[in-house]
Nucleic acid binder design. Structure first.
Lengths: 216, 216
DNA sequence: GGGAGTGTCTACCAAATGGTAGACAGGGTT
DNA sequence: AACCCTGTCTACCATTTGGTAGACACTCCC
């Protein structure tokens, strides 16, 4: 049976629903996603979706919760790993980029939630709060240590987040700029983003030492 | 007189509709905007909207066309002005930032169109094509002249665009990062963004000369 | 005064949407 | 066998949505 996107082996129905919902909410948006479509996509009746999740809102909440957990976990792990690494900023950035490329819909979901008004956003905020704090603290530490140019960590994170979001989700902008959207050019894009950030973050007058990990 | 957009004195109905539509499409999204809401917002019946614009799609197209024209004009002007200025990149950037702050909904609209699939995006692409070309050429020129770090101009533009979009439209992300959203902090945000970009773009080993225009 | 045209409105409609009610099938458990 | 529990489905409903048809002013022109 089923060999569409949902061809994963025997998977719990609620998880399959969550997958499809995250994808659709994250790419098309919440309002543009109808339960009927979702159901059809999964070979399920809409009512089966409503059996697992009592309402569309609840489905969104569940998708956000799971997405936030995934993202939090991935970045948390990389923050830990970074503590030991040579070039900490780069380690985290590579992790973020990898995540953005592998699960762009989750970043799209974050972006979508931002638009759905205070209520939903507040929930997401508390979910990602600890992660944000850790990242901010780590960045501030680097600044104090002199490995990163001094600036407001929150702002630096905002800029970085925005760029990653843009690279991961705004493929139309990339087309408009004449960037060809393919795996090959994606690697180049990542290299450029890392170089860009390296330049933006290296302390003034001291261009970052050519780190070994900085592939070219 | 009038200090809100909608209660401007005698303004052509179609322009008022276009204003409200741009705002709503750009912030809530296309599908989340109903013609009834729009009409109610304007004190008009939905059918009046459909008198001026034959369909919701046509309304979106018109909003995009006007928005693209505004954006194109603003940035084109700044590109011209920049040709004479000392620090060209900064001039353009300030213009972009000013635009992003004054009419964030138009940037949101661009972002929204990106999501509405190939069709609409292609239209926008041709509309903004010339602007993109000019910007890209100008940037490449700076790189050849050695005033900007060498990199793929398209990528640099993508990163910059993403950051501006993020700063202008993703206020929830800013909240999540603990950035207080106010006019005062907005000025600080702009300063930081300029500093960040200056660092990212200055040629290696030669930190940009402290330009006069770079306020602190 | 009488059209002609323009702009806005009041019905109305068909389709889609989120959600409810309840039937039905299958598998344990006793 | 009787029963319950779980998961899925078929109907159905109320509301919303984009869009149509046509009436009602109001103005300009003759």
């Amino acid at each position: 049976m089923a060999r569409m996107a949902t061809l994963t082996a025997p998977m719990r129905t609620d998880q399959r629903i969550l997958d499809a919902a995250s994808r659709s909410f994250g790419t098309r948006g919440f309002d543009s996603t109808s339960l009927d479509d979702l159901g059809h996509q999964l070979g399920l009746a809409k009512q089966t979706i409503l059996y697992w999740f009592p309402s569309k809102q609840a489905l969104l909440d569940a998708a956000v919760a799971r997405g936030a957990a995934e993202l939090s976990e991935a970045l948390d792990r990389s923050l830990e790993r970074a503590a030991l690494a040579e070039d900490r900023v780069e380690v985290v950035l590579r992790a973020a980029f990898r995540f953005a490329v592998r699960r762009p819909e989750l970043l799209g979901l974050v972006r979508e939630v931002s638009r759905l008004g205070e209520g939903r956003a507040a929930d997401l905020r508390t979910r990602l709060g600890p992660l944000v704090d850790r990242a901010q603290a780590a960045l501030a530490r680097e600044m104090r240590a002199g490995t990163v140019r001094r600036a407001d960590p929150a702002h630096v994170l905002l800029f970085t987040y925005s760029m990653v979001i843009g690279v991961a989700t705004d493929i139309e902008a990339q087309r408009a700029l004449g960037i060809d959207v393919s795996i090959a050019s994606l690697a180049k894009l990542r290299r450029e983003l890392l170089a860009f950030l390296r330049a933006a973050l290296s302390p003034i007058g001291a261009p970052a030492p050519p780190s070994v990990a900085f592939d070219r």
